[in-house]
Each structure stands twice: as structure tokens, then as C-alpha cells.
Design a protein around this nucleic acid. Structure first.
Lengths: 345, 345
DNA sequence: TGAAATAATGTAACCGGTTACTGTAACCGG
DNA sequence: CCGGTTACAGTAACCGGTTACATTATTTCA
């Protein structure tokens, strides 16, 4: 392999163009006027030399990285496609770099977060990507952050963007109960401590209560929003010797619903005749599943865009606080037992 | 908002611990032994001060960024979930940062690639994420790169990881022709100039030729692998006054197949009775679609892992060349007309 | 016409790490 | 007891940009 050749520095450009490094810098950053002749000569020399300023040097001098981070627990969900698109699009248009990292709960105590003030100008924290302590410690230094799909602890005023969970879940569960006569509804509640999960459980309980049904712990499965976890959870329930009875599953995400479909199908359980299934997120494939998936439409890409834009607002020192909660909508299709699909969007 | 407070520097740590900066550096990097007492004192001081080395300073001094880049055209495909997982997992385990950027063909002439030697130690180039000229120019400087889902121009020895396209496409098309009697097969060939597309077209043509069918340009649609593009393409065909007849669609990706399903459904075309549909990638939802999707199984996450590992091999100066081509497999389900699903994997 | 303002550029310190080189003390074998 | 290692630690140059301040040339205007 060719040995990595030393990169062209600003001093070489300056020398070749017969000007000082300051002038070159001013030209590349348009930070001060440069005479037309010099500008032309520099453009010439820079393209000849393929000059590209060394990012680290610039970062060190300006104390700005022109990068933002996205910290999440994992990427194992089709949900992240619209999400990443929203983030990436905004970041690119701002001319920033995007650093993506997963940060596992397990590793938290041993290693510091891979993203922070040391390598970015600000960051999006997805769900419970960061513990409260780390959040507080970063926030204390004034590091710009925006939370997505979670809200900050009461003591911290960190902007957040989330979706409405409680009411929509209550509606969905109530629909299963009242319209389809479901009584024992399995709830795959997502990761422990995750805020969406917590709020949805509130809606779930409200619906049960309002309809005189009892809350049965055995129907609640804590895990994650990924299809593999959902598959295992349903499999476990179905394979149990003392098989827990259930007549519906609220999967927590469309991705998880795929896992539910798979487990039910393998056990010969019919959807929706034997068991109603509902997801969350309204991903593109849902309406073409067999049966079409009842779900909750969440504006995922919009959430991502808004969060990213708020982050850039912070970078521009536009103070911004408070939680933005975007609306969600029930999408009824056949997997819950409904006979006709809602009119297409 | 709290003003961003100045970060703790190595000199402050050194002063507070009563040692020199060199010692602190040696301690943080384990680059040379440090006496136990000093080590303990430093550990103490560093945690008190919440010291975190400034990435840019370190990068400037070592001329290593400990970051790798991933350059792609877009992220609009569920395909990218397993792909990103593979990349991110390997990168994280190596303790590197991952910078992701899309680089649009349109913008190429005006702006330089957002990722390169100036901000990363190496990069994965997905498909035709970078033009040949840029590729050559980066490669000439010895910048480590690995191509994914494309191979380098003949003159450049850049490692690549791809999947087998020609033979599997030939098999798939031949299956449609021989088993299901299809004769006019629409081919959504993906982006112009994209290598997978090009190779699959070869397989497509081979199958037609071997079976005495004519190649009809009107059946070929160049665009992208995304569902929206596929939807538009099929819609256009179906809405045409002089409606082009067809009895099968090879969608190019499972994501695109969703768009095909949608367009066909809206026009009342039955799958597979009227039109066979096949995808590519074997994403998780495919087997649960209505009808279950015939597709090609590609080891996407493995492709991603191998490519990333090869990239790290280059960073470690393990010279590596040549194309790795991973095998693909036909997955027959009902959307092509087959009555029984293949045994589950 | 000369002082002041303005425009364009240069000099050199600085950002916060790493590391080559140097120094000192303890230790080792003969 | 002494020359040679070995272990640990310090000094200061350096990485490649930015920018405060200084400088020079040109223009403006009383």
C-alpha cells in the first residue's frame, strides 16, 4: 500500500501563493476581505495542491468541531430509517458532520460516552441513551443537548421532542377492548426505564381501569422494541407449560410486531381471529402485512428534524427550553380485528 | 443558557497532581509506565476534575482521528438497518467514532466530500457514493478505503465487498419465466450507474436470452432502490394511456417491493395472480407481507462487518486487496406465484 | 497638504494534546 | 565499587489551523 502522504498545510499554500498564512485562512473562511488578485491566486494554488484544511487543527483553534452527535442505545429497528433521514438531512444542510454512536447500558459504568463536548458541539440523545447523572454533568457544562423520545429529569432544563403516548395508547387499548372484546392484552413494553414505555403503560392501565379489567403483571413483558426480543417474548409465553392465556398483543413498535407475527404464526395462532396485534410507528410495510397492521402513526422523521433544528438553535445561542410533544394517530387495519382498512393517507 | 465552560486541560491536571504533562499523557494512554503512586494520584485528580482529553488536540498531535467514515447516497431504505448495525458494531468495538454522511450526486461538483483524510482515518464508500475521480484522488494519497456494493475501477486496487448479483438474478428471472410462465418482466434497476443494477441487468438479459424472450427497454426503469421511486415507476406504467403490458416485477430491493405492492394494490392488480413480484435483500418483514415476498437473501450485516473489518485491517497496515463477493440465495414465497413458502430459515 | 480613516496583509501567540530527547536515581553483575 | 541498564519523570518542540495586534499603502476630507 502507498504510504499515507503528508497532507498539504496552510503554510505550503501560503508560500506557494506568496502570501501569509493569515491571508490564506481569511480567504478560506471568508472571515475578512482579500484582494481579488490574491483570491484568484489562492484559488488556483489551492486546487493545484488539493488543499483541504485539517479538521483537527481548525477545531483546536476555534474550539468548534462542526460536528453533532447522535447517541442511541441501538440501531436495531426499522424505525431508525426515517429517523436517521431526518437527522442527517438537517445536519448536512447545516454543513455539519454527524457522529453516530450506540452506548450500551452495560458499558456505561466502565466507559465514558463516546460522544460529548470533547468531540462534538452538541448532541441528540435518543431515548435513554444517557444516564441521568451523565446528562446532568454534561448539561452543567453548558453542552448543547436535545432529548428525543424522552424528557429530562425535573431538575434539568434540556429541550426535548417526543410524541404523545398516553392518550393514544389508551385509545388503542380501549379499541381492542370495546370493539373487539379483548380482555387479556399482552403488552410488550419496551426497554426498562424507557419513557415511551412508561407512558404507554399509563395509557394501557387507564384503558383497563376504565373498562373494569384487571392489570395482570404476567401480560407485561419488558425488553425492547426490536423484533427479536418481541419474538422471544411471545415464544416464551406460548411455550410455557402453564401457558398464559391472552387474546391480544400490543407490540410497542411495528418492528416488534414482525416478531410477534412470526411467533404467533409458528404456533399456529391466527391473527386476528385468535389474537389481535397492534404495533406503533406506522412504518411503510405495515399496511401490506398479512393481515395489515393496526398501529399508531408517529411523525418520526418530523421528530428527528425538529430535534435537530432545536439543537442547531442551541448552537446559535438561541435559548430554547421545554418539551415539544408531537401528535400521534390511530391507524386501524385488520390485525386488530377491524374489517376495513382506514382510508389511505 | 449557561455559557459553555472552558474544558479542563492536561496542564491543569498535571499541575494539580504535581507532575508534568508528559506523565499525564503517558498515564492516559498507557504509553509508558508510571509509578503506582503517581497513577493513583492522577486517577484521583482526573476524576475530580472530570478531565476528558480534547479530541482535536489529540488528533492534531497524533495525526490520527480514531474515526472512520461511511459515505452513502442516501439512507432511505430499510436495508440500511442491518447494514448500519454491522458497521456500527465493529466500529464501536474498535473504540472508533463513526461519521455518517450522504453525498448527493447533484452536489458533487460544487462541494468536496464531507468525509475524507481531513477528518477520518479511513472510510467505507457505499455503492457509488463517490465518483471515480474522487476515488482515484483519495486512493492516490493512500487514504484507506473499502468499497461496499461496488468494485473499484480497473486501475485502482481498492478492496471491496459485494454480493453475487448476476447468477442469482438470472435464476430468479428464469424462475419467473419457466415456473410461472412470465414473459414481460418489469425490472426496476436502481440508480443509474449503480453496480448492483448493472450486474443484475446482465442476469436479467441472460435469463431472457436463454428462454427466447426479447429484451424490451420499456420494461426497464432506472431510478433507485427506494419504495417511493418504485411506487412512482409502477404508477407511471399503469397510468399510461398506452399502458405497457407486464406480468411480473423484479423490484430490486424489498423496500422497493413495498412501493410496488402499493401501486399494484391501488390499481386493483392482484399479486401474484396478475403480476408476480420479487424483491431483493430479504428484509425481516418480507415473509409476512400479503402475499409473502419472493426475494433474494443477501447477507447485508455480514457484508457490513466484513467491509468494516477490512477497513480496520488497512488502518493496521495489513495490506489487503481484491474483491470479496458474498453468496446470495433465492427465497421463494408466494408473491412470485409459488404456492408454498420455502422452509423457514 | 497632512491627519485620520480604511483596506489589505503580515507576525506570532495560542488552541491542548503527544513525544523525542534528556536527566536522575535505583539497581545489577562482575 | 563502578560502568551499564532500567525505570520513571520533566522540558519543550511540534501538529496545522485561527486571530489579536501590528504594519503598510491608499483614500478621504478638513
Amino acid at each position: 500500500m502507498t504510504r499515507r502522504q503528508d497532507s498539504v498545510t496552510i503554510r505550503e499554500v501560503a508560500k506557494k501563493a506568496g502570501v501569509s498564512v493569515a491571508t490564506v485562512s481569511r480567504y478560506t473562511n471568508s472571515s475578512a476581505p482579500v484582494s481579488p488578485e490574491v483570491a484568484e491566486r489562492l484559488a488556483q494554488v489551492m486546487s493545484e495542491l488539493h488543499y483541504m484544511p485539517h479538521a483537527a487543527a481548525r477545531q483546536l483553534a476555534t474550539r468548534k468541531t462542526r460536528a453533532v452527535g447522535l447517541l442511541l442505545n441501538n440501531l436495531r429497528n426499522d424505525f431508525f430509517v426515517p429517523f436517521l433521514n431526518g437527522v442527517e438531512d438537517v445536519v448536512r444542510k447545516k454543513g455539519y458532520n454527524l457522529i453516530i454512536a450506540t452506548y450500551l447500558a452495560d458499558s456505561r459504568e466502565e466507559t465514558p460516552p463516546p460522544i460529548g463536548p470533547h468531540n462534538t458541539d452538541g448532541m441528540l440523545v435518543f431515548s435513554d441513551g444517557l444516564g441521568d447523572e451523565a446528562l446532568a454533568s454534561y448539561h452543567a457544562t453548558g453542552f448543547p443537548m436535545v432529548l428525543v423520545h424522552s424528557t429530562p429529569p425535573a431538575s434539568l432544563s434540556i429541550p426535548s421532542v417526543t410524541v404523545e403516548n398516553i392518550e393514544i395508547t389508551r385509545q388503542l387499548i380501549e379499541h381492542l377492548i370495546r370493539v373487539h372484546g379483548r380482555q387479556r392484552i399482552v403488552f410488550l413494553r419496551g426497554p426498562k426505564g424507557q419513557e415511551d414505555s412508561f407512558l404507554r403503560e399509563r395509557g394501557y392501565r387507564q384503558a383497563l381501569e376504565a373498562n373494569g379489567l384487571e392489570y395482570d403483571k404476567r401480560l407485561i413483558h419488558t425488553g425492547g422494541f426490536e423484533r427479536g426480543i418481541a419474538y422471544d417474548a411471545i415464544n416464551t409465553i406460548l411455550s410455557n407449560g402453564n401457558r398464559t392465556q391472552f387474546d391480544a398483543v400490543f407490540a410497542g413498535s411495528d418492528d416488534a410486531a414482525i416478531g410477534v407475527f412470526r411467533a404467533l404464526q409458528q404456533h399456529g395462532v391466527r391473527i386476528p381471529e385468535d389474537v389481535s396485534v397492534a404495533g406503533f410507528d406506522n412504518l411503510g410495510f405495515g399496511r401490506f402485512l398479512d393481515p395489515p397492521l393496526t398501529t399508531v402513526s408517529a411523525p418520526t422523521e418530523t421528530v428527528a428534524r425538529m430535534a435537530t433544528e432545536r439543537l442547531f438553535g442551541l448552537l446559535d445561542n438561541q435559548p430554547s427550553e421545554g418539551a415539544v410533544v408531537l401528535p400521534t394517530e390511530l391507524i386501524l387495519r385488520r390485525s386488530c380485528g377491524c374489517q376495513f382498512e382506514q382510508p389511505a393517507l
